[in-house]
Design a protein around this nucleic acid. Structure first.
Lengths: 351, 351
DNA sequence: TTGTAAGCGTTATCAA
DNA sequence: TTGATAACGCTTACAA
C-alpha cells in the first residue's frame, strides 16, 4: 500500500553522482562542487526527495530531537513555555517532541517510555509531582535532562526554577503596604512544592508583620475549587485581600467572588498568578505575578544545550525572579473600608 | 561521546534467543512462547533496552507518526484541539508531532518540510491562510492529509470544519430576539474564510431583519486591535450589541469597553467566540459561541485513520454545529435602554 | 572533490 | 514457534 518515498539512491542516479555526494549536498558536512550540487538539488526537487530522518538518525546515532514533557497542555503557562523552547530548538537545529502528562503519574510513566524510544539527544521535563519518574533516573547518564517548574530541588538533575518563596513575599509586601491585615492565600495543591513555597513565603511575611493570614487548599479541579473557596468564604469573615497562587485558583477566586457579588478591588483586593490577556480585559484589571517565561525557557535551553555538547561541569542555575504587575484589583485598605462602609455593610455581611 | 544505547542484538544474546524473537516479543506481531517472552523481557529490563524507533521506522516503512500543524499554539482553541487529537492518537498507537506556524507563511513552509522528514503516516493541518502550502499538494498522494479550521473548502483535501455561517446566524438571531437593532461585528482578519463566514452569516441575517449591522476589521495584533476598535467606537454611535468573532477580538472588545467605562451587558451586550474559563470568572459572564472541539478532533482523527488504513472512497464530512452559551453579557434591549436612560445618557454619550 | 562500501537497529521473509 | 539473513536509507571512513 504505502510505497516507499524517494531515496537518496534514486536522487544520486538521477543526478549521476554517488549517494555520498547527495548526502553531503544536504548535510553540508563536506564541500561539494557547485555544478554537482545544483544538479543534485534539481534532481531532488524533481523527484520530490526529502531526507529520511529515521535512516539518518539510525546511521548517525544523533536524533537532533529534544523532548518536552509538561503536566498540562491546556495551561497557558506551559504552552508559552513550550512555544519559547521550540523557538530556541528550531534555531539550533533541534526538533522538539511534546508530551502531555495530564497531571497523571501513570500517563507520565507511559510518556517517558514513548519519548525515550525517539532516542532524544536531550529531555526537558516538568514533572507531574515532586517525585521524578524513576525511568529518568535510569537514563540520566545517557541523555541530558533538565527539570523545570515542578519537582524538588535535587543534586541528581539540573533544575531551572523561579524563586517561588520570593514571589510569595513580594505579593505579601505589596498587600501589607496597602494596609491589608487579613489576607487569604488560595492554594491548589500544597503537594506541589512551588505552590507550597509561594504560600509559605507570603504567609510568613504577613504573619511576621503581625497581620493575619489564612490558607485554603482548594484542590486541582477547577469547578470544585470555586465551590470549596465559596464555602470557606461563607464560613469565615471576609478577608480584605486574597492571593491566588496559581492560574487556576485565580480563576476560581474570581468566579467565586462574582457569585458572591463581591466587587474585586473594592470589597476585596485580589492578586493572581501568571499574567494573561484576559486579566486586563476587565473593568477591574487583575494585579498578578508574572513568571519570566522567556528567561526560564532560555535558561532551560542553554543549560540543556551545554549538556548536550558534553559539558559535565557543575553548573549552578540561580532561581529566576518573578515580577508583580500591579493593577486595579489590589487597592489600599482605605478603599475597601470605604466601600464596605458606604454600603452599610460590616465585613461579615459581604460573605 | 554519545555511546549507542542497548540494541536488540544485545538483548537477544542476553536472553539466548534470536533478534527476530525479541522483535516479536515487543511488537506482538507474531506469537512467542511464554517462557521465552519472559526471558526476553527480563533481559531487556535488566539492560534497560528500548526499541529504537528510527530503526523500526526505517525497516518497516511505517513511522506511526502523525503530524499536527497549527497557526498559533498560544491560542487555547488550538491547544485544546491538539490535546484532544493526541488522546485519539495515543489510543490508536500513533505519536503526534506538533508544529507551530506562528501565523506566518514562511515559517509554515519550513515546518512542512521538517515535518515531512519524519515520514509521517498522516498529517493534520490547520493552514495559516486559505492558501494551502503547495508542498502539501505535492505529497497528498503519498500521505493522507486532513485539513481543519482554516483553509478553503476544496476537492483536493479532506476538510473538517464548523458551520461558520450558521454560527454567525445563530448569534444574530439571539441578538435580534433580544431586540437589538444596531449590532457591531468585530472581525480580526476577513482573509480568514472562517472569520469571513461568521461575519457574513451574522450581518446578512441582521440586515435581512431590517436592522443595522456594521463591521470593523481590527487586524490580527491584539494590542492594535483594541485601539482600532476604540477609535471606531468613539467615531460612531455606540451599538447596542457587539459580536466578536474570534477569541482575540473578544478580548480586544472587552478591553476596549473597560477602557471606555462601558458596562458589559448593561450599556452594551457582548457575544464572544470560543468558550473559556475566564469568561465565567466575571461579574458579568460572557455569552459565547462554543466550537465543538471534541467532535472536531474526533472527526479529524477518524477521517485520517480511515485514509491511513487505505480507504480511498469519497468521504463527505458534514460541517459541525457550534453552540451558543447564553450568559449575562447579552441582555434584552430594554436593559440597555434602561441603563443608558437611567444614567441620563443618550447612546451618543457612551462613546 | 568524489566514489565505494560498510553498517547503524530493526523487521520481514523464508527456511527449519 | 523460532532462527538466519537480507534489506530499509542514510552517513562516514577510506580510497581514489
Amino acid at each position: 500500500m504505502a510505497k516507499r518515498p524517494i531515496s537518496i539512491k534514486q536522487v544520486a542516479d538521477a543526478a549521476g553522482v554517488s549517494t555520498a555526494t547527495v548526502s553531503n549536498v544536504f548535510s553540508g558536512k563536506k564541500p561539494v562542487n557547485d555544478d554537482l550540487a545544483a544538479r543534485v538539488r534539481d534532481a531532488a526537487k524533481k523527484l520530490g526527495y526529502r531526507v529520511n530522518r529515521a535512516a539518518s538518525n539510525l546511521r548517525s546515532g544523533q536524533s537532533r530531537v529534544v523532548t518536552v514533557m509538561v503536566p498540562d497542555l491546556s495551561d497557558p503557562y506551559f504552552t508559552s513555555l513550550v512555544t519559547e523552547i521550540e523557538e530556541h530548538a528550531q534555531r539550533d537545529g533541534y526538533q522538539i517532541i511534546v508530551a502531555n502528562t495530564k497531571d497523571d503519574v501513570e500517563t507520565e510513566r507511559g510518556r517517558v517510555s514513548a519519548l525515550l524510544s525517539w532516542q532524544p539527544d536531550g529531555m526537558i521535563v516538568v514533572p507531574t509531582s515532586d517525585n521524578i519518574p524513576e525511568q529518568l533516573l535510569q537514563v540520566k547518564d545517557e541523555v541530558p535532562i533538565v527539570i523545570t517548574d515542578r519537582g524538588i530541588q535535587t543534586k541528581e538533575f539540573d533544575v531551572v526554577r523561579v524563586d517561588n518563596a520570593a514571589a510569595g513575599k513580594m505579593v505579601a509586601s505589596h498587600l501589607l503596604e496597602f494596609g491589608h491585615r487579613r489576607v487569604l492565600v488560595v492554594a491548589s495543591d500544597m503537594q506541589i512544592s512551588g505552590v507550597y513555597d509561594r504560600c509559605n513565603g507570603a504567609i510568613e511575611r504577613i504573619r511576621a508583620a503581625g497581620a493575619q493570614s489564612d490558607l485554603v487548599e482548594v484542590g486541582p479541579v477547577p469547578d470544585r475549587a470555586a465551590a470549596h473557596l465559596a464555602r470557606w468564604l461563607v464560613k469565615n469573615p471576609m478577608p480584605t485581600a486574597i492571593f491566588a497562587v496559581t492560574d487556576m485558583t485565580t480563576l476560581a477566586t474570581l468566579t467565586c467572588l462574582a457569585e458572591l457579588k463581591a466587587e474585586v478591588g473594592y470589597d476585596v483586593s485580589v492578586v493572581g498568578y501568571d499574567d494573561y490577556p484576559w486579566m486586563v480585559a476587565r473593568r477591574t484589571p487583575i494585579t498578578a505575578v508574572r513568571q519570566p517565561v522567556e528567561q526560564i525557557a532560555e535558561a532551560v535551553w542553554t543549560l540543556l544545550l551545554r549538556r548536550m555538547n558534553g559539558d559535565d561541569s557543575q553548573i549552578e542555575v540561580l532561581p529566576l525572579e518573578c515580577e508583580l504587575r500591579v493593577r486595579a484589583s489590589s487597592q489600599p485598605i482605605e478603599k475597601t473600608e470605604e466601600t464596605r462602609g458606604r454600603r452599610g455593610r460590616a465585613a461579615s455581611e459581604v460573605k
